[in-house]
């Protein structure tokens, strides 16, 4: 089995949250689907709540405190991302956006990302297509065609429609991860040009 890493970003605020619940369903499905493709996916779940203060401090000081730095490095090194946010005011939550605001502009380039969101009713579902998808397009991530929205009803309904969407999105993510080489992290302190070239430029 090939080893690959998956980082799951959950921006849920309550504990437990339906956002985390959806994130867990998606990551479990992704692990299963990846296994069927011969990929052993190691999962790290990040609750943004745990680094919420660090995020604001990063914005104010320009550098990430240790715990946040660790999360950022995990995301940069990840072979795939699952990003789940509650819908606030017709968009992602501020906490969710803040995390992606402090990432390096190239951190997600060509990285498979599965986007998902939660909300009270299905009326909020298009926030995925109008807010999350454009942001990840801007970051040049490879966003899965299937995004997953879970409303309150989805958790209580007898007919498990959510299950099918979760599996479809997870299989898309597993396929994108399995067909790529492992993620390579660029060292920000590495020189890319010789000094002679810089002088001659």
């Amino acid at each position: 089995m090939n080893q690959r890493s998956l980082v799951v970003i959950s921006a849920g605020l309550s504990q437990p949250s339906s956002t985390r619940l959806l994130a867990d369903r998606l990551s479990a499905a992704a692990v299963d689907q990846a296994a069927s493709l011969g990929v052993d996916l190691t999962v790290r779940v990040v609750e943004l709540r745990d680094v919420a203060h660090d995020l604001m401090n990063h914005m104010l000081t320009g550098f990430p405190p240790a715990a946040l730095k660790d999360v950022i490095e995990a995301v940069e090194a990840a072979d795939g991302i699952i990003a789940v946010t509650p819908v606030f005011n017709a968009s992602f939550s501020g906490l969710f956006k803040s995390f992606f605001d402090v990432l390096d502009k190239d951190a997600l380039v060509d990285k498979p990302v599965l986007i998902a969101a939660t909300g009270g009713t299905a009326r909020h579902s298009l926030a995925l297509e109008h807010a999350l998808r454009p942001m990840f397009a801007y970051l040049r991530a490879v966003t899965m065609p299937t995004s997953v929205f879970a409303a309150t009803d989805d958790w209580g309904g007898s007919e498990d429609l959510l299950h099918g969407r979760v599996d479809r999105a997870a299989s898309e993510l597993a396929r994108e991860i399995s067909r790529r080489e492992p993620a390579v992290v660029t060292d920000p302190f590495a020189l890319t040009t010789s000094f002679a070239d810089m002088l001659g430029a």
Partner: peptide, 15 residues
């Protein structure tokens, strides 16, 4: 300026 209204002094002295 620079770091005020951000991290606590204890955090910043550690970091």
């Amino acid at each position: 300026p620079v770091y005020g209204h951000g991290p606590s002094m204890e955090d910043f002295t550690r970091e």
